[in-house]
């Protein structure tokens, strides 16, 4: 991959975020929420926290990444892997400048909102990534050395995933039906990653079926960066809303009420 390839794939933003972005360099940008569900999924956690992924995400305008890593804590290493362009200053550089302070403040705010039971442990790291091509937030960032910062936070489990899904501009999830529905019911663009490590392969089946219908993008961990570059996740069809009458008609086959008042 090269920088000009990425800039070709990334269309120049037609609308400027302007003052909002300038106001808050770290929070004003789009965010990604990655979730592995109730177990663990090392490969997905690794893929969404790798320097490679963060670099592509930053160039696509995503500056905040939240990862629900389940039991895959060991795989949660923001900014790991070989750097894409240049080696110096890459990796986890926490609290080095104002942006890092802003990120810390954001994490503190998030922790304040969450109760102690909802998030036992929120880890936040600010990762410096090389800036590829044009992005939504470039004008507000310090462009010295063509580096930008991505805030990566992670936690194990939450009972209010819905809130993180609502906040995200893109959801990357394992292909579990629950997570797929959570994202689609909240009308979020979704990239579903089937877990190849599981014995039964029906996860992949569902993801593929939904991919064919155009409701989500099904990809494996290695394809995440190419999906982000291609912007395929921005051209999805909305998933039809839930219709309570359907289940009601099924319940009527099992039980009926004598009195219809």
């Amino acid at each position: 991959m090269s920088a000009d390839q990425a800039s070709n794939a990334t269309p120049t933003p037609t609308q400027s975020i302007g003052s909002a972005a300038a106001m808050d360099a770290t929070l004003g940008c789009r965010s990604i929420f990655a979730t592995v569900g109730s177990t663990g999924f090392d490969a997905l956690v690794q893929a969404t926290t790798s320097l490679d992924f963060l670099t592509v995400a930053a160039s696509a305008g995503y500056r905040r990444i939240t990862v629900q890593y389940g039991s895959s804590l060991a795989a949660f290493q923001p900014g790991h892997g070989t750097p894409v362009v240049g080696e110096d200053d890459c990796g986890t550089t926490a609290s080095v400048n104002a942006a890092a302070a802003a990120a810390a403040a954001a994490a503190a705010a998030a922790a304040a909102i969450a109760t102690e039971r909802e998030r036992q442990h929120v880890e936040t790291a600010v990762v410096k990534v090389p800036l590829l091509g044009t992005s939504h937030c470039s004008e507000s960032e310090q462009l010295e050395n063509d580096y930008t910062e991505v805030t990566v936070s992670g936690y194990a489990y939450s009972t209010v995933l819905a809130r993180d899904i609502d906040r995200a501009d893109l959801v990357i999830s394992h292909a579990g039906s629950g997570s797929i529905l959570d994202a689609l019911r909240r009308e979020r663009p979704l990239i579903a990653v089937p877990n190849g490590g599981l014995m039964d392969n029906h996860q992949a089946e569902l993801a593929l079926e939904m991919h064919k219908e155009g409701y989500l993008v099904s990809a494996n961990c290695g394809e995440l960066t190419s999906v982000l570059r291609s912007h395929r996740h921005e051209q999805l069809r909305p998933f039809p809303r839930q219709e309570p009458e359907r289940f009601e008609s099924i319940l009527a086959c099992a039980v009926q009420f004598d009195k219809a008042d």
Partner: peptide, 10 residues
């Protein structure tokens, strides 16, 4: 559990 519970709550 997990996905089953999500679907059931839905």
């Amino acid at each position: 559990s997990g996905g089953h519970t999500s679907e059931m709550l839905a």
